[in-house]
Design a protein around this nucleic acid. Structure first.
Lengths: 157, 157
DNA sequence: GGTGAAATTTAGAACCC
DNA sequence: GGGTTCTAAATTTCACC
């Protein structure tokens, strides 16, 4: 997945369609962007191989699979020693309830997005994840009341 | 998309596969979960109709489409009057750089995930989005240094 | 990048547990 | 109600121009 830099207008148009529905037939995509189906296919294939398209996935509604609550958590650590940070990354990433985890600059060190079945579950999770970890200095909780805009990897302009 | 009741172990197993790669042929899925392809197909169809599967999409790498920088933003508003909150929701959701937007409880009112081409672009965005909005009291910026775990809608245990 | 045909997959109907 | 087998339609895939 090395060089494949420039995406032209065709690629962008194709991506915009696939980001909304990647089951759209190549023939239909071709009609919309004025290309033949095989041409569309070659471009998709290339973008997959070069990593522009990271994955093709089904998006599952958290509430429908037992995770009705979404919570943002800011985590501040005691020490930013590389080994400890790496350990924290691995630890957070391994937790199923942790849907997203970013290592950030600013007033916090990590931002997590977790989904849980109940606040009791969240409370239990914080105990396992934060209170049991000596390197966690502090964390702040933000419970989502409304999922105004949900994340794909990136939405194109 | 009314009642959709309980997902059994087959449904969960199918979802787990589709969340990693929804181009997996139904025949292959059937082999892995010990079901015939049509049975798999009916279950997928039903989960799509009932909203368990929200969408089938291609995940695009932000860095490869000109958005190498990911930033979390906590936004605090002056007034939480319903009209103002709704206006803010609509405003945030309409901005392409805003990949995710949640209305939350806690020390902030909104949490945004934005992706931009450069810090200059982010600075320009903050001007448009926050400084120009009288109802924004304060915002805090967290620049992502490492995308430890990236978000799908939800990852199953 | 386009056109064609082959191979695979998906969609549907009839049948059985 | 759900699963299986079979058939038909659509799509993906690969030749070649």
């Amino acid at each position: 997945m090395s060089a494949s830099p420039e995406l032209d207008a065709y690629d962008r148009a194709i991506l915009a369609i696939l980001q909304r529905d990647n089951t759209t037939p190549q023939r239909v995509i071709g009609e919309r962007v004025n290309l033949s189906a095989p041409a569309v296919q070659r471009r998709i294939r290339r973008m997959e191989e070069t990593g522009v398209i990271r994955a093709n996935v089904a998006l599952v509604d958290p509430a429908r699979v037992g995770h009705p609550i979404t919570i943002f958590v800011e985590v501040e650590v005691e020490s930013e020693r590389a080994e400890l940070i790496d350990a924290a990354k691995r630890g957070f990433a391994a937790v199923p309830e942790v849907q997203q985890c970013y290592y950030v600059t600013g007033e916090a060190d990590f931002i997590l997005v977790v989904t849980v079945a109940s606040m009791a579950d969240y409370e239990a999770l914080t105990r396992r994840l934060f209170f049991a970890d000596n390197n966690v200095k502090r964390f702040r909780t933000f419970v989502a009341m409304d999922r105004v805009k949900v994340g794909l990897e990136v939405s194109l302009a």
